[in-house]
Amino acid sequence: MAAVQVCEAEKVYIMHGVRDDLRVDGRGCEDYRHMEIETDVVSNTDGSARVKLGYTDVLVGIKAEIGKPKPAAPDEGYLEFFVDCSANATPEFEGRGGEELGSELSCTLYKVFNNVNSLELRALCIAPREHCWVLYVDVLLLQCDGNLFDAISIAIKAALFNTRIPKVTITEGEEGGAELELSDDPYDCVRLNVENVPCIVTLCKIGHRHVVDATLQEKACSVAGLLVSVTHKGTITCVRKVGGGSLEPESIFEMTETGKRVGKALHAPLMKLLRDEEAQGKQRQKVGFLG
């Protein structure tokens, strides 16, 4: 992952600040940086969102394609994840440089989002064992300034909220083969229920305390962190230790509790923002990258 060099004195300064609940940029330990969210930014996707968290900048595009259900879950559709760590973010990612990080991120995202608890996968099924919707969730990393997981998860939730899947009706062929017919009405489409879609909260252990939404400098002072995915009810759906160092069981417990609290609080304002934006409908001036 893109890293910055931090000298010892700086490290000490950051660690002491965290101990006193006062971070370099003036935040408390459980505060997020300024965040900007915009949906429907790429018109040829079925759903898209862009999230800026500090200088971290991610773009998520979702495309729905018709595929075959997996044999293990014949009556469910599924999600596919791809994270493109582009050279735009940092020259280190040029060529195949970003692939490792990309696959690490996409594996985690798959675990967090592709299950019936977070999304009604059954609603994506068109005909059991025959056809289902496959949602290709493509994440494009445009700028890295720490805390990628949280930014990506919020962008994915926003993009899923924005996703409109064309309506498909099944007509029975004469020999039992189902024929798919797409509705020609562009307004005739299916929305996804994103209520239970979790958000990821990454906590970084710095000294004896932990912080949410760590910047790259803070991250450089941390040996290990914990990733927690939390739904709007406060249910934890996934916990994963990240980073090279080790953590004590007690601090894992503490961090999980913090993650639960912070994560739960994240959902309500996010949903409000998304609904407000949608309410503006066609009148909304799209900003995208021009703002």
């Binding site: 018109s43 040829n44 729905a64 394609e65 064309p166 797409l182 020609d184 562009p186």
Partner: peptide, 14 residues
């Protein structure tokens, strides 16, 4: 004004 036309499941924006 954007016009969308779905052919197959491709979303075409013109």
């Amino acid at each position: 004004v954007k016009k969308t036309r779905s052919g197959g499941v491709m979303k075409i924006v013109r």
